[in-house]
Design a protein around this nucleic acid. Structure first.
Length: 197
DNA sequence: AAGGTGATTTGCT
DNA sequence: GCAAATCACCTTC
């Protein structure tokens, strides 16, 4: 039986808060092969128009970023070299903000995850990066625009963390983003070994 | 042409 | 283990 999805209203809180609320919840994807999922242990907030690191900086609205201008709770995927990265749209309509999921801790379907990550022997390397977890859960560009409160890609209630379990720091891989690169908008579950760095 | 990355290799400590 | 270098060959503009 499938874990029940969180309602779309879960995604309506401010992006920086949502990035922290998502930690500890369960990201799930079901395919014909089976159900896979894991606890979200690392996220990054991208605050749209005022954030040089965000794809939606300066209200840059293109075919790719279009989904971010809509309601919260939808999936924004994009391709980076050979990998697909998963973001969750946040903010209201015309507030193009999003949360990047950077790492999860495998829980459901670990056999299937191991199979999809067959060359990787160490379990902690299966999902400890934004491009790795999408491969492990089989999240692809086909999921672009998906509404997160329903099959086959959704988030269910996991463990609840309190503030002491959450660490924060500068985001990763945004070297050329001016002053934005110093903002402490990366959040992770403190001491969890599946965090990317 | 460049990018919010990853896997592999190489050369250290 | 860790750091740097290299390449992969997709999507987008």
């Amino acid at each position: 039986m499938r874990p029940k999805s969180l309602p779309l209203s879960f995604y309506s809180e401010p992006t920086l808060q949502l990035a922290q609320s998502l930690l500890g919840h369960m990201l799930l994807k079901e395919t014909e092969e089976g159900l896979t999922g894991g606890y979200i242990v690392e996220t990054e907030a991208y605050l749209g128009p005022n954030d040089r690191a965000a794809h939606s900086f300066n209200h840059r609205r293109t075919k790719r970023t279009e989904i971010m201008f809509g309601e919260a709770g939808y999936v924004y995927t994009y391709t980076m070299h050979t990998h697909c990265l998963l973001n969750i749209v946040s903010g209201g309509t015309d507030e193009p903000e999003a949360v990047l999921i950077r790492a999860v801790e495998p829980y459901y379907g670990q056999d299937l995850i191991a199979q999809r990550r067959s060359k990787i022997t160490k379990k902690k390397h299966w999902t400890n990066g934004p491009g790795k977890l999408t491969k492990a859960l089989n999240i692809t560009m086909d999921d672009y625009g998906h509404k997160l409160d329903q099959h086959p890609l959704w988030i269910a209630r996991g463990k609840s963390l309190d503030a002491a379990d959450i660490a924060s720091g500068p985001r990763i891989g945004i070297q050329n983003s001016g002053e934005a690169k110093a903002y402490p908008w990366r959040f992770w579950e403190y001491l969890n070994t599946f965090v990317s760095k």
